[in-house]
Computed example of a mutant assay.
Amino acid sequence: MTVSGGRVPLSVLDLSPVSAGSTPRQAIRNTIELAQRAEGWGYRRFWVAEHHFVRVASSSPVTLIGLIAAATETIRVGSAAVQLGHHASASVVEAFGTIDALYPGRLDLGLGRSGHRADQIRSAGVPPVHTPERPIQVRDGVVIPPPFSPGQLLDTVRLQAGLRALTLPGARPLDYTEQVEQIRAFLDSGYRSSEGVVLHAVPGEDAQIELWLFGSSGGESARLAGRLGLPFAANYHVSPGTILETVAAYRESFRPSARYPKPYLVVSADVVVAPDHATAEHLASTYGHWVYSIRSGAGAAEYQDPDTAQPLSEQQQRLVRDRITTQFVGTPAEVTARLAALQQLTGADELVITSVTHRHEDRLTSHRLLAQEWGLSHVRAA
């Protein structure tokens, strides 16, 4: 599929952010409205993330996906991504299968490694081995900052508490690759246990669900997606410093599958669009505050009002500079040009856009202006 001017399709990634002074209940309603508008504006997919114990309301993506599917008609709906460290394979397939029974052929089951796995938490808060910091690069108009190290997280106590709360006592998450294979088996013709018993997911088996993997590095997720011939989503908006390695790992490891004879890559970007540059800069001015709340270890806070928030200190800015410099902020023409550069550099087949502002109306405007400038109203089959 292409859009006006030969551009690739755009999709939406939403976190159901809770703005300062608002509520999770309103955040859910905002997400439903955004999904309905995105469908009308020509976006191809609407994905929701999974986060727990923070001020975003997407803690139960499967429930939210069912609500969005019921409130829309044609747009694909999915997870970006189900964090496998918190879920059993069968429960994931059965939940998506239940939704697919009513809305067949519209679901994307995105899988990711949990950001709260014990090995990642152990590495967080531990100063990384000192290596000379790579300077910020600009490749064909795309900003590539130094990679962010988990060792830079300021406090991991909350992460550890969250992991314990999401895990049954004594439970051990499966190896990521093993769990992905389990899910593939449940979606296909049944999972064979170590005892030779074949288990069938009902509903779920033979459902019209598209399986995706998500990743922020050139590690296990990217290479597994390639080996299995699956579509892959690379998180530039989360880890801009590793985007080139991530994309290369996926492409280098890709083996054709029945559904995907060649790689299919989606790349994410964080975007704020407004009618003029100054307004866009103002609306995006508290994005750094939000990222800092995550990287400080406290978890995503309420999204602050740019009219009242105090500026970040220089020390705080250093912790989030990679994310601020790689946010796409400006007029529709400015942001479209930068997104086109990102697409060209990565060879993405599709871009997925996330946009967070304090006021829901500004977020709607951002997505609408981008859709118009990109040409989504003229979507046609390739």
Rank of each mutant, 00 (worst) to 15 (best):
A38E: 06
E39R: 09
E39K: 06
E39Y: 03
G40L: 13
G40W: 13
G40K: 15
G40V: 12
G40Y: 07
W41S: 04
W41L: 14
G42Y: 13
G42S: 09
G42I: 09
G42K: 11
Y43P: 02
Y43I: 04
Y43L: 07
Y43Q: 08
R44F: 11
R44V: 10
R44W: 09
R44T: 14
R45D: 11
R45A: 07
R45S: 00
F46I: 02
F46E: 07
W47D: 00
W47K: 07
W47Q: 00
W47C: 03
V48L: 05
V48A: 02
A49T: 15
A49M: 10
A49K: 00
A49E: 09
A49W: 03
E50A: 06
E50T: 10
E50P: 03
E50S: 12
E50I: 05
E50N: 08
H51Y: 10
H52M: 04
H52F: 00
H52L: 06
H52A: 11
F53H: 13
F53S: 07
F53E: 02
F53L: 02
F53I: 05
V54F: 14
V54N: 13
R55V: 05
R55W: 14
R55C: 11
R55S: 15
V56D: 03
V56H: 06
V56M: 04
V56S: 07
V56E: 09
A57H: 01
A57C: 07
A57F: 02
A57Q: 04
A57R: 03
A57G: 11
A57W: 03
S58G: 09
S58Q: 01
S58H: 01
S58T: 12
S59H: 03
S59C: 11
S59A: 15
S60A: 15
S60C: 10
S60H: 05
P61H: 11
P61N: 10
V62Y: 01
V62L: 11
V62S: 12
V62I: 13
V62H: 10
V62N: 12
T63F: 04
T63I: 08
L64K: 08
L64H: 05
L64Q: 11
I65D: 09
I65V: 13
I65H: 02
I65N: 02
G66T: 00
G66L: 02
G66W: 03
G66N: 06
L67I: 13
L67H: 14
L67G: 03
L67Y: 07
I68W: 10
I68R: 03
I68M: 05
I68K: 10
I68E: 03
I68P: 00
A69S: 14
A69V: 04
A70M: 08
A70H: 04
A70Q: 15
A70R: 14
A70E: 14
A70V: 02
A70N: 13
A71D: 05
A71G: 07
A71R: 15
A71Y: 11
